[in-house]
Design a protein around this nucleic acid. Structure first.
Length: 418
RNA sequence: CGGGGCGUAGUAUACCGGUAGUACGCCUGCUUUGGGAGCAGGUAGACCGAGUUCGAUUCUCGGCGCCCCGACCA
């Protein structure tokens, strides 16, 4: 896409009402727009990033047998009354609304009840499970305090998968598979080497859960890491008993600040029991399926990538999540030959299926470079009088800053899209 | 929800009990063109309400909003 037509603009100065690095950079670079506290609009560049994150998650969830659905935001209180969670003292992040005739409705903050209820119609035999169902959908949570830019918001995209297995053994096997899929997701998102599977409390549903914690000072959590095994333990369950159970020793563990980018946990049969979801097993006996829940907040993942990878010049996107693969910068000035060459390069790359942000604006080099650094597309390509005189194009890596001149004849191979 | 801080052009900031200045942005023109250019002209602003006062953007109170610390975070 041509940058001259991109309706957003970069800003030199950070907004004063944002302290967090993720929000400052994303707003300055024109990826997001702040509507109000904890509520952000995704602008074209930010939307592209979220779509890429979504794609990675979707691929990995499909690979482990996930089936995608899209559930509703408006929810029936009756289902929640059955599970005992309609009460504001049980879930304190509710947004609720009412129909004109006065009927109360819930605005979804999670979907265990809704999905379990749907499955009553489709799961009745052991042949109907396991079922692994997920969605990428907007969640609303009335957080007491939104904070840390896009890390804790009141409205956000979330991937939530729910597993239904015949028994706990089947659940366990899938749970491990999903944990592996999560690690692949975070690796592809560029934060794999600083993300730890972390033993944590299971809240009110189970004795444990696994969180995926990414090391960053911007985090809200404290974890303890055992570098030898790569495992970590959340501070909230960092007790001698838990460590003994996990075979870990306090002597070998280091403390770190982190942000929770994902969470998986066992739900047992609580929701099937509350909502009446049963299947008939091989011997004709009726049983409750064993359930698990697996979440990733897409916006928080995007914010975490920013916190971990950006530098003093701006954003740095890993290839798989970058809004574009190449940032083509034309330094044409009044030189129509350079402008024509830049157009040719743009067309050649685009025809090869490469996503290009083409800075065709009538602006000076300094401004264009500063913007390119701020936006953080992995590869910058410059076409100018200099590069034409040298018979090629200049290719710069955003992360390392390393630059090379690629001869014109070698350009197709350099950008072969494989 | 407890505590603290803050609301001035699109953005970032300054000053002031007598209606507001600067920078960036944006518009026009000329020059410039490899790291956020120069000159000239122009555009655009006091969160809302009440009170005090001859007069409030400034002081007081209330509301609303934003940020930070803590608590909370199925």
């Amino acid at each position: 896409m041509r940058q001259s037509q991109l309706f957003t603009r970069t800003r030199k100065e950070a907004p004063t009402d944002e302290i967090s690095k993720n929000a400052q950079l994303l707003i300055r670079a024109g990826f997001i727009y702040k509507e109000m506290a904890g509520v952000y609009t995704l602008l074209p560049l930010g939307f592209r990033v979220i779509k890429n994150i979504e794609r990675i998650i979707r691929e990995e969830m499909n690979a482990i047998g996930g089936q995608e659905v899209l559930m509703t935001t408006l929810q029936d209180p009756k289902l929640w009354e059955k599970s005992g969670r309609w009460d504001d003292s049980v879930i304190d992040v509710w947004f609720k609304t009412t129909l004109r005739q006065g009927t109360e409705l819930g605005i979804a903050n999670t979907h265990e009840e809704a999905l379990t209820n749907i499955l009553r119609e489709y799961i009745s035999s052991h042949r109907d499970i396991p079922a692994y169902i997920y969605q990428i959908q907007t969640k609303f949570r009335n957080e007491l305090r939104a904070k840390s830019g896009i890390m804790r918001t009141r409205e956000f995209q979330m991937k939530d998968l729910y597993s239904f297995n015949a028994d706990e053994a089947g659940f366990r096997a899938f749970y491990e598979q999903c944990a592996q899929a999560y690690m692949r997701i975070f690796a592809r998102a560029g934060i794999g080497d600083v993300t730890y599977r972390t033993f944590a409390s299971g809240g009110s549903f189970s004795p444990f859960s696994d969180e995926f914690q990414t090391l960053t000072e911007a985090g809200e959590d404290t974890i303890y890491i055992d570098d030898a095994s790569g495992r970590a333990v959340n501070k909230e369950v960092y007790t001698d008993d838990v460590l003994a159970e996990l075979g870990l020793s306090k002597d070998a563990m280091r403390e770190a600040r982190s942000i929770e980018v994902g969470n998986i946990f066992p739900l047992g049969t609580r929701f099937p029991e509350a909502l009446g979801l049963m299947y008939t097993d091989e011997s004709g006996e009726k049983k409750f399926p064993y359930m698990g829940s697996y979440g990733i907040g897409l916006g928080r993942l995007m914010g975490t990538i920013v916190e971990v990878l950006s530098d003093d010049k701006g954003l740095v996107w890993p290839h798989e999540v970058a809004p574009f693969a190449v940032h083509l910068v034309s330094l044409a000035g009044n030189n129509s030959d350079v402008a024509a060459e830049a157009e040719n390069t743009y067309n050649a790359l685009t025809e090869r299926g490469i996503e290009v942000l083409f800075d065709d604006r009538d602006a000076r080099a300094g401004e264009k470079f500063a913007d390119a650094d701020l936006i953080g597309i992995p590869t910058r390509v410059v076409v100018s009088e200099k590069t034409i005189a040298a018979g090629g194009i200049e290719v710069t890596d955003r992360k390392t800053g390393s630059t090379e001149l690629v001869p014109e004849s070698a350009v197709p191979d350099y950008f072969s899209n494989d």
